[in-house]
Protein backbone atom coordinates (compact mmCIF):
# COMPACT_ATOMS: atom_id res chain seq x y z
CA UNK A 1 0.00 0.00 0.00
CA UNK A 2 2.70 2.45 0.99
CA UNK A 3 4.64 1.54 -2.15
CA UNK A 4 1.60 2.38 -4.21
CA UNK A 5 1.28 5.67 -2.42
CA UNK A 6 4.93 6.42 -3.05
CA UNK A 7 4.41 5.60 -6.73
CA UNK A 8 1.53 8.06 -6.99
CA UNK A 9 3.65 10.68 -5.24
CA UNK A 10 6.51 10.22 -7.69
CA UNK A 11 4.16 10.51 -10.67
CA UNK A 12 2.59 13.70 -9.27
CA UNK A 13 6.03 15.24 -8.66
CA UNK A 14 7.12 14.24 -12.15
CA UNK A 15 4.03 15.92 -13.68
CA UNK A 16 4.70 19.06 -11.66
CA UNK A 17 8.30 19.12 -12.89
CA UNK A 18 7.31 18.64 -16.50
CA UNK A 19 4.71 21.41 -16.42
CA UNK A 20 7.06 23.70 -14.54
CA UNK A 21 9.69 23.18 -17.20
CA UNK A 22 7.41 24.25 -20.04
CA UNK A 23 8.68 27.23 -21.90
CA UNK A 24 6.76 30.47 -21.94
CA UNK A 25 6.15 29.89 -25.61
CA UNK A 26 4.27 26.64 -25.11
CA UNK A 27 2.30 28.12 -22.21
CA UNK A 28 1.24 30.94 -24.47
CA UNK A 29 0.27 28.41 -27.12
CA UNK A 30 -1.86 26.49 -24.63
CA UNK A 31 -3.62 29.63 -23.45
CA UNK A 32 -4.39 30.69 -27.02
CA UNK A 33 -5.45 27.18 -28.00
CA UNK A 34 -7.85 26.54 -25.12
CA UNK A 35 -9.45 29.99 -25.37
CA UNK A 36 -9.64 29.49 -29.11
CA UNK A 37 -11.58 26.26 -28.66
CA UNK A 38 -14.31 28.25 -26.89
CA UNK A 39 -14.37 30.98 -29.53
CA UNK A 40 -14.65 28.23 -32.14
CA UNK A 41 -17.62 26.62 -30.38
CA UNK A 42 -19.46 29.91 -30.12
CA UNK A 43 -18.75 31.41 -33.52
CA UNK A 44 -17.63 28.76 -36.02
CA UNK A 45 -18.85 25.32 -35.07
CA UNK A 46 -22.47 25.63 -36.25
CA UNK A 47 -21.32 25.94 -39.83
CA UNK A 48 -17.86 24.39 -39.97
CA UNK A 49 -18.71 21.49 -37.62
CA UNK A 50 -17.22 20.11 -34.43
CA UNK A 51 -14.42 18.42 -36.37
CA UNK A 52 -13.91 21.21 -38.91
CA UNK A 53 -15.57 18.99 -41.48
CA UNK A 54 -17.73 21.68 -43.15
CA UNK A 55 -20.99 20.72 -44.85
CA UNK A 56 -21.00 19.00 -48.24
CA UNK A 57 -20.31 21.56 -51.00
CA UNK A 58 -21.95 24.38 -49.01
CA UNK A 59 -19.42 25.06 -46.26
CA UNK A 60 -15.71 24.29 -46.67
CA UNK A 61 -13.79 22.12 -44.21
CA UNK A 62 -11.00 23.73 -42.19
CA UNK A 63 -8.54 20.92 -42.70
CA UNK A 64 -6.77 22.22 -45.83
CA UNK A 65 -3.38 23.05 -44.26
CA UNK A 66 -1.93 24.23 -47.57
CA UNK A 67 -4.71 26.80 -48.00
CA UNK A 68 -4.36 27.99 -44.41
CA UNK A 69 -0.59 28.42 -44.72
CA UNK A 70 -0.82 30.21 -48.04
CA UNK A 71 -3.49 32.63 -46.85
CA UNK A 72 -2.36 33.02 -43.27
CA UNK A 73 -2.03 36.81 -43.52
CA UNK A 74 -5.56 37.17 -44.90
CA UNK A 75 -7.34 34.83 -42.50
CA UNK A 76 -7.90 37.51 -39.80
CA UNK A 77 -9.60 39.72 -42.43
CA UNK A 78 -11.76 36.82 -43.65
CA UNK A 79 -13.00 36.21 -40.11
CA UNK A 80 -13.55 39.86 -39.27
CA UNK A 81 -15.16 40.98 -42.55
CA UNK A 82 -16.55 37.77 -43.94
CA UNK A 83 -15.66 36.17 -47.25
CA UNK A 84 -17.31 36.33 -50.69
CA UNK A 85 -16.41 34.79 -54.01
CA UNK A 86 -14.93 31.48 -55.07
CA UNK A 87 -12.29 29.63 -53.13
CA UNK A 88 -10.81 26.20 -53.73
CA UNK A 89 -10.44 24.02 -50.66
CA UNK A 90 -9.08 20.49 -50.95
CA UNK A 91 -9.67 20.63 -54.68
CA UNK A 92 -13.34 21.57 -54.35
CA UNK A 93 -14.85 24.93 -55.24
CA UNK A 94 -16.90 26.82 -52.63
CA UNK A 95 -18.75 29.99 -53.53
CA UNK A 96 -21.17 30.80 -50.73
CA UNK A 97 -20.84 33.77 -48.45
CA UNK A 98 -19.25 33.56 -45.02
CA UNK A 99 -20.78 36.20 -42.76
CA UNK A 100 -18.59 38.68 -40.89
CA UNK A 101 -17.78 37.89 -37.26
CA UNK A 102 -17.14 40.87 -35.08
CA UNK A 103 -14.42 39.35 -32.90
CA UNK A 104 -11.64 41.20 -31.10
CA UNK A 105 -8.09 40.78 -32.41
CA UNK A 106 -7.15 38.56 -29.46
CA UNK A 107 -10.18 36.32 -30.09
CA UNK A 108 -9.20 36.05 -33.76
CA UNK A 109 -5.65 35.11 -32.74
CA UNK A 110 -7.01 32.49 -30.32
CA UNK A 111 -9.42 30.91 -32.78
CA UNK A 112 -6.80 30.86 -35.56
CA UNK A 113 -4.34 29.16 -33.20
CA UNK A 114 -7.05 26.62 -32.39
CA UNK A 115 -7.99 25.97 -36.04
CA UNK A 116 -4.34 26.01 -37.13
CA UNK A 117 -3.57 23.23 -34.67
CA UNK A 118 -6.71 21.09 -34.94
CA UNK A 119 -8.31 18.97 -37.67
CA UNK A 120 -4.87 17.72 -38.76
CA UNK A 121 -3.34 21.21 -39.16
CA UNK A 122 0.01 22.07 -37.63
CA UNK A 123 0.76 25.80 -37.65
CA UNK A 124 2.53 27.93 -35.09
CA UNK A 125 0.83 30.10 -32.48
CA UNK A 126 -0.84 33.03 -34.19
CA UNK A 127 -0.49 35.89 -31.73
CA UNK A 128 -2.46 39.05 -31.22
CA UNK A 129 0.23 41.37 -32.65
CA UNK A 130 0.40 39.59 -35.99
CA UNK A 131 -3.42 39.59 -36.17
CA UNK A 132 -3.49 43.33 -35.50
CA UNK A 133 -0.91 43.88 -38.21
CA UNK A 134 -2.91 41.79 -40.69
CA UNK A 135 -6.17 43.52 -39.79
CA UNK A 136 -4.61 46.92 -40.47
CA UNK A 137 -4.03 45.94 -44.09
CA UNK A 138 -7.41 44.31 -44.85
CA UNK A 139 -8.57 45.12 -48.34
Amino acid sequence: MSWKLAGVFIVVVAILFITACQSDESLEFKRYYSSGALVYQNHCQNCHGGNGEGLSALIPPLSDSTYLKKNIGSLPCYIKNGLKGQITIKGKIFEDVMPANDLSSVEIAQVLTYIGNSFGNKLNTIDEQSVQKDLASCR
Partner: peptide, 15 residues
Protein backbone atom coordinates in the same frame (compact mmCIF):
# COMPACT_ATOMS: atom_id res chain seq x y z
CA UNK B 1 -30.51 29.01 -47.55
CA UNK B 2 -28.60 32.08 -46.31
CA UNK B 3 -29.12 31.21 -42.64
CA UNK B 4 -25.88 31.72 -40.75
CA UNK B 5 -26.97 30.38 -37.38
CA UNK B 6 -28.62 27.00 -36.80
CA UNK B 7 -29.51 25.83 -40.32
CA UNK B 8 -26.13 24.31 -41.23
CA UNK B 9 -26.10 22.22 -38.08
CA UNK B 10 -29.76 21.23 -38.63
CA UNK B 11 -29.08 20.05 -42.15
CA UNK B 12 -25.84 18.33 -41.15
CA UNK B 13 -28.03 16.32 -38.76
CA UNK B 14 -30.87 15.92 -41.28
CA UNK B 15 -28.35 14.45 -43.74
Amino acid sequence: TTCPSICPIMHRNML
